[in-house]
């Protein structure tokens, strides 16, 4: 019994005497749970963004009164296409020839839930026929929305785990000290690792693009050069964030904690699995400037809308600027011992 007691105490003492571990083991998961809990609070009404066209004003009023629906009245087909592809709406409702046409992806849960709300609202306000339609616009399916986001998430994970974790691991194993004692150019040191990991990341993501495009027939309306350029800038920006993430951590728990603290919220909020437009507007204003949001939106737009450099240069510059700042701070405070 004494043995169990003493062995138990070893573990508890070791844990309690490392304030950093304490933070990442207690404070971080609780904070994350609180943030996510608030974001997905069941008391908060979930809103499904839908697009409307040619809908009679009294019916629009009904929709507006439904707290579960967030309405956009769309003018033309191009606008409908763009909104669907960007995930700004999950369902489109059109009134023509005395019938309501509901367009949505039956494989997308949020779209199905939006459909139920729409049916409920329509059955209370109109007796016209309701016709269900699968979305036939190339790039407006959920899978079309999901895959570009997954590519962006892959870029983030390659950088954060591939570069950030490598440096943390090197520090834990005391492999950095010998380099710090030499006149190694610190920029070159980081660049070498970023390029080496970047090469693997390109191969990894190229395979992903080819395979998913082939299997899921994801439309690619953009220019391959634009995609590669955005991909590279995105990867370099996340490399800067990775160096920042890895700059001080010297234990596995802390390293894991920091990387998860950066990646997890972005995976949830940046519109990888579902549109971030479902979040309250105030939150959307912040989310749209998260590095992963910028990259996912850009890759998605190149894939599905074929945007060119004029459209992406500004958001891409913001992403690059974020990466550069994180790199400079990370390099300055990088712990070599």
């Amino acid at each position: 019994m004494k043995q169990i007691q003493q062995l138990f105490l070893i573990s508890v003492r070791e844990f309690l005497r490392e304030p950093e571990i304490l933070f990442w083991a207690f404070v971080f998961p609780i904070s994350l749970a609180l943030v996510l809990g608030l974001a997905f609070d069941t008391n908060r009404t979930t809103q499904y963004p839908i697009g409307l066209s040619q809908i009679p004003p009294d019916v629009i009023k009904k929709f507006e009164q439904n707290p579960h629906l967030k309405i956009d009245v769309l003018e033309n087909k191009d606008q409908v296409n763009a909104f669907l592809k960007k995930g700004k709406i999950v369902l489109f409702l059109e009134f023509r020839q005395n019938a309501y046409y509901v367009y949505y992806d039956k494989n997308y849960d949020n779209a199905k839930l939006a459909y139920l709300e729409v049916i409920k609202a329509l059955s209370n306000s109109s007796k016209n026929q309701i016709i269900e339609k699968e979305i036939e616009i190339a790039g407006a399916r959920y899978i079309d929305y999901l895959i570009p986001g997954l590519i962006a998430m892959g870029v983030m994970n390659s950088a954060l785990w591939g570069i950030g974790w490598t440096f943390i691991n090197m520090r834990i194993k005391k492999l950095l000290k010998i380099f710090s004692a030499s006149p190694v150019n610190k920029n070159y040191f980081f660049i070498a690792f970023v390029f080496a990991r970047g090469l693997l990341s390109i191969i990894e993501n190229l395979l992903l693009v080819v395979i998913v495009s082939f299997f899921f027939k994801i439309p690619f309306l953009g220019n391959l050069f634009d995609l590669i350029f955005v991909y590279l800038v995105g990867y370099l920006s996340f490399s800067g964030i990775a160096i920042f993430a890895a700059c001080r951590a010297n234990t596995t728990v802390v390293g894991n904690g920091i990387i998860n603290a950066i990646t997890l919220p972005m995976m949830v909020f940046s519109g990888i699995f579902f549109s971030y437009h479902s979040f309250p507007e105030v939150l959307v204003q912040i989310i749209q400037y998260l590095p992963l949001t910028i990259l996912a939106d850009l890759i998605r737009s190149i894939f599905l809308e074929g945007i060119t450099w004029i459209d992406y240069i500004f958001p891409l510059s913001i992403l690059a600027f974020q990466g550069w700042i994180f790199y400079l701070v990370g390099k300055k405070y990088f712990l070599w011992k």
Partner: peptide, 19 residues
């Protein structure tokens, strides 16, 4: 002076670890 000095000195640490 860091670059100059690091080029002038050689060091063998107490416990050198390698990849």
């Amino acid at each position: 002076n860091e670059k100059f000095l690091k080029q002038k000195i050689g060091l063998c640490l107490q416990e050198t670890r390698f990849i």
